[in-house]
Simulated scan of single mutants.
Amino acid sequence: MHSTVSGKPRSALIVLLVSALLLGACGSKPSEQKKRDQAAKDKLVITNVRLAGIYLQRGQLNFAKEKADKAIEADPSSSMANNMMGILSWRLKEYDNADRYFRRAVRYGPDNALAANNYGAFLCDMGKIDDSLEYFDRAAENPYYEKRSGAMTNAGRCLMKKPDRQKAETYFRRALKYNANEAEALYYLAQISYDTNRTLTARGFLERYFATGSQSAESLYLAVRVENAMGNKRLAIRYARRLKDQYPTSPEASRVKIR
């Protein structure tokens, strides 16, 4: 009589164990193959998206479209590929396509803060200001996104179009929490402060703005007005001269009179 384990012949148990191992091995192969296939897809997507971005920067839109199409073909559910197609369609003024691709990008990549920021910027450009804020907020909520201050600045700038200066100021101040040297946020806060008769605050924001190394005809013209409002004529003249020397053909320079 054969010895048994749990009432079954030992030889039968060995057969069952071997069968289970074989089944397990067979089951693992598709999983490993799937991983390899996905890795190959990811590589194709990354390569073609990068090339599309390079061509887009060069203004070679046909080549950019070709590479973006290849990225989508490699993986239609890639957030990165759909984001690039959204940017390209926006550039080509194919707005319905851009909206569709951006929607896919944020759906397939809920943690893709770049796609969320881009979709917010697109919606703002389309005049959908309130809708855009959801995506700017989503981008800023991602702790790994390096440009959270930029997303908040984009939201504030979008609200300036409405205009809703009070809410815009909130977003610009949030931008400074992520990056105290976010130049554009500093400039807009100076502008809002001046427009609401907070000239000392406006001066403070402008000084911080200039300290970042940033400068524009608009910011120098604002500095002239701020210093004039505070009665500091000498500093106002200094800013006016910088404006005329460095931006002589600007509309702002033509508005300034040096006495």
Rank of each mutant, 00 (worst) to 15 (best):
A140S: 12
N118Q: 10
R104W: 11
D75T: 04
S193T: 08
N228H: 05
L61N: 07
G231F: 10
N197F: 12
S19R: 06
A202K: 07
D137H: 12
K8N: 11
L222C: 09
Y144M: 13
S79G: 05
K147P: 02
N181M: 11
R165S: 14
A105T: 06
R208A: 10
N181S: 13
N118M: 07
F172C: 07
I258K: 00
T212W: 09
A115Y: 06
D75P: 02
G156M: 01
A68K: 02
D75Y: 02
E252A: 08
L56G: 04
M80K: 11
E73S: 08
V49W: 04
L88A: 08
E207M: 09
I14Q: 13
L222W: 09
A151C: 07
A68R: 04
S6P: 03
E32T: 13
E169L: 09
K93I: 07
G59Q: 06
T249M: 10
A39W: 02
L13S: 00
N48G: 07
L200S: 12
Q246T: 13
K257L: 13
F210S: 00
A74T: 08
Q38G: 07
P110A: 04
S19P: 03
G120T: 09
D96E: 15
R107Y: 13
M152I: 06
L243P: 06
A113S: 12
G59E: 01
E146R: 15
S28A: 12
G59H: 10
Y188T: 03
A185M: 02
M160T: 03
K167H: 10
R104Y: 14
S77G: 01
A105Q: 01
R104K: 15
A155E: 06
V226M: 07
S11R: 11
